[in-house]
Each structure stands twice: as structure tokens, then as C-alpha cells.
Write a protein that binds this DNA or RNA. Structure first.
Lengths: 238, 238
DNA sequence: CGTAATTATCACAAAACAATCACAACTGCA
DNA sequence: TGCAGTTGTGATTGTTTTGTGATAATTACG
């Protein structure tokens, strides 16, 4: 997954230095040199992390921080500040920063913090996942346990590889809906994956040989001729 | 239902900062600035969650934690610790904290964890299964004494290092569930630990050489290819 | 019924991943 | 401080999975 960050910093040298390192590390980073530009970019894009300098020409950083915090989606905020008094820290935390770094900082340290922040965000998402996504799915004679990554067909455990499981899980979460091979590559393999469409065929083939009673007459993953594949819908047939 | 929490923290700035945010979020939070006050409030009120600083002027946090744990009703405990080394110990000792956070922490993260904790508490109450905090765990030929931090395989005592024990305990508490190396680093090593994923491999390797009859054909800690590791589920095989 | 287009199957090499080992850095402790 | 044990990391080897090419089977449609 691509991680998008926004750097809010008025000193171009610093901003570009940071941007360059972030790009080297595989992140996608935009720059805003003042508060107004920052809010504009922020509203237009969805960032996962904002690196925010407290001292800005127009707005002050704390206001900006609060504004971003009030947005729908959660963004991590890493504050950069010149001073390092305890008051500053508490203030920054109160405003909702997730981490804090005082200038001058070292690039390796910044990168380490960013990495750590992303990790924490991911861990949190993992915790929160329970509400939106179900831990187990039952469809016909198929039972999928997401946490255990185990699959049972008619009560019998079958052993799937990581890809096979991900593929099956994706299908089972969208029963009845047809997906093209490209869509499957995007959703299951990942957006930046490049490869041949017929790779999907092979995986479907292998998956069927494991979960289907009679792979030539599939019950779960069906071929939609000229389009792609779909998971059989409970009621509607064919 | 009103959620009552107790903040045990000797730095007034932090205590009030947290209290303010909790109130904003609709919780009812009391503050205790030392261990004695904490126990007094704890006995008089019934809290659902205690946010507990490890470093306190009079008592140490662990003792407090144990005392609260021994109360009739179950309370969730979220620990705040200063360093990550200290945190290892806490986790290792399994004094019964439900979650932890290292200082300096960010308010959004704290709030997220509190929410997640309440969700877990609710889910637990539903189940009525009080099996979460057991002093000993038996799984197959494996016997783990949490308090003594000792492990027996087929009645034979084996000598594990701190990490090995923590790792095994974590697995044994979540049998069947698959964890990625990153998740293990987060849960066993600590959220802000940074290191290489393949460190986990080495520890699994060493752990296996101690507890497995035939490390090349593990009975307890199984590899899930392309994903991570899991503890063998009772019934399910392979 | 024949043909072109699409999908299924299979085998294999390459890539991704995991296990292992050795060693240096670190830890707690006497 | 020095020591013994523990832990993290690099390097190497071994294993499983996965993508891909080739080919066979199936489908749509004139």
C-alpha cells in the first residue's frame, strides 16, 4: 500500500530534504509551505501522516493541527518545533499530535519516528478492525476463519497458501459480484503489482482443486465468460 | 451506560490533559496522584478502566496493578511506562495489564486504545468466559505456569529465556490464531520497538529447539507460509 | 460444424520466504 | 569492572510458493 504524507514546512531546504528521503524510502510526500496551502492539499488528498512545522508564516501550527484533527478520517500528526520546553510538549500533545520532534533534528531520527508511527497506526487499525470486518464467514459448505486463516469445506480443513486464502477471502466477502482479472490483481495482489492476467487463472485453478468437490463444475468460484470470476451468490443461481 | 475511569498519574499536567480529553469524549474520569489515593478511590468506586502510571511517588505501579487485579470485579488496566525496557519486564511479568503505552504518548493514540479496550471488555462480558487471565495454561504436552514463568514439556522442565517465554506465552494464549512477524514484534517486544522482522525467526528457532521434540516438525509453534506463525489449535491439524 | 476467442491445466524455473548458524552487541549481575 | 547469558543481526542454505510458457479444453457464434 502506498503511504501518502504531507510536509508542512516553510523552509524550502528542509522540506525538500525531507521529501527526498521520504521518496527514497518509498513514500509519496507532498509539500506545503504555509497554512493555507496545507489545508487546501489536506482537503483534496487523503494523507496518512502530516509532518507539521509549528512555526509558519501565516497560520500557527497548533490551529492547523486542530483543524486537521477535526477531519473525518484519522491522520497521524508529527510536529516539528524549535523550542523544547515541557509546556510545548504537553501543548502539542493536547492539540493532538501523535509524536514530537525538536529542531534541529537528524534525518535518520525523523525517518525512524515516521516508520514507528506508521507501525503504531497499523497496529491500531488492526485493533479497530473487529467492528467493520467479520472474523469469520460462512457461505454454503464453506467456513472461513479470518484470524486463524483457516478454511473448512463441509467441515473438512483444507490447506491453502497465502495467495489462495487471500483470493478466496476476497471473493467470499463480495458474493455475487463479478471481478475482472485486472480487478483481482489490483485488489488481491495490490495496486502496484505488475504481471500477467492469466496468473489469476492459475490461482483460481489451484484454489478450485482444493475447495471444490468437482473442479470442473465449481460450486464456489464461478467463471463468468468473457469477463472474469465471481463467488456464487446464495440464492441466485448460475 | 456511563464509563468510569481512574487516572493514576503523579504529573498533574498529564493527568489533567488526559482527564480533559476523556471528558470531551463522554467518559467520567477521576484522578489519583499516588498509590494510596488510588487504592482508596478504587475501593470506593467501581471503575471499568484504570490508566496506571508505573512510576509513582509512593507505591510502585506493579503492586498497585496486582492489588487491583485481586479485586472481586474485573477491571481493565492500561499501563503507562517510561521506557521500553521497563515495558518488556512488565509485559513479561504479565502482571495483568490489558494494554500499555509508553511515554511520551499521544492523546489520540491513548483515546484509541481506550476505545479499543472498552470494546474488548464488552465482548468479553458477552462471552462470560472468564478464562482470559489464567495463572497456568495447559496445551497438549505443554504446561505453562505464568507466575513461576516455568514451562514443562511432557512433564520435563525446560529452561526458557525471558523473550522465549513471553513469545510462547503469547502464542499459547491465542491458539490457532495467525500472527505476522510485525504483530509479534508489537505485542511481544512492544509497540515502539524497532528492529528487523527476521529477529522473530531466530527466536522462534531457538524456542523450537527447546520445546519441540523434533524442531523440523513442530508440534506447537507452526509456520504459516507467507504470513507468520501460529500456535497449533487443539482439534485442527497441520 | 468449424473457427476464433477465451479459459483450464500442467510443469517448471525463478522468486519469495523461512530455517539455521555464527557472531557481535548488549544485559544484568557478582 | 568483568563475566555469563541473552538477544539482535548478517550471511548462507534450504524450502515453498508463485508466475509464466506451452498446450489442451471449452465456449461463442457464424
Amino acid at each position: 500500500m502506498q503511504r501518502k504524507l504531507l510536509i508542512v514546512e516553510d523552509e524550502p531546504d528542509i522540506a525538500h530534504l525531507v521529501q527526498k528521503h521520504l521518496q527514497d524510502a518509498g513514500y509519496d510526500a507532498d509539500i506545503a509551505s504555509n497554512g493555507a496551502a496545507a489545508m487546501e492539499l489536506f482537503r483534496k488528498n487523503s494523507y496518512q501522516l502530516v509532518i507539521l512545522d509549528l512555526m509558519l508564516p501565516d497560520t500557527d501550527g497548533l490551529t492547523l493541527c486542530r483543524k486537521m484533527r477535526s477531519a473525518e478520517e484519522y491522520v497521524a500528526i508529527l510536529m516539528l518545533t524549535a523550542k523544547s520546553t515541557e509546556l510545548d510538549r504537553v501543548l502539542g500533545l493536547e492539540m493532538g499530535a501523535d509524536d514530537y520532534l525538536t529542531k534541529p533534528f537528524s534525518v535518520p531520527e525523523l525517518m525512524a519516528r515516521i516508520k514507528a508511527l506508521f507501525r503504531r497506526i497499523d497496529a491500531l487499525k488492526e485493533d479497530t478492525k473487529g467492528i467493520t470486518e467479520q472474523a469469520s464467514i460462512e457461505r454454503g459448505g464453506l467456513y472461513i476463519d479470518v484470524n486463524k486463516r483457516s478454511v473448512q469445506v463441509e467441515g473438512e480443513l483444507v490447506d491453502l497458501t497465502a495467495r489462495e486464502f487471500d483470493l478466496l477471502l476476497f471473493f467470499a466477502r463480495h458474493p455475487g459480484r463479478v471481478f475482472s482479472r485486472i480487478q483481482l490483481l489490483d485488489k488481491v495482489w495490490g495496486y502496484n503489482h505488475d504481471g500477467y492476467e492469466h496468473t489469476v487463472n492459475s490461482h483460481i485453478n489451484r484454489l478450485r482443486s482444493k475447495i471444490e468437490q468437482d473442479p470442473s463444475e465449481p460450486q464456489y468460484v464461478l467463471t463468468v465468460w468473457g469477463v472474469g470470476y465471481k463467488f456464487r451468490d446464495q440464492r441466485s443461481d448460475a
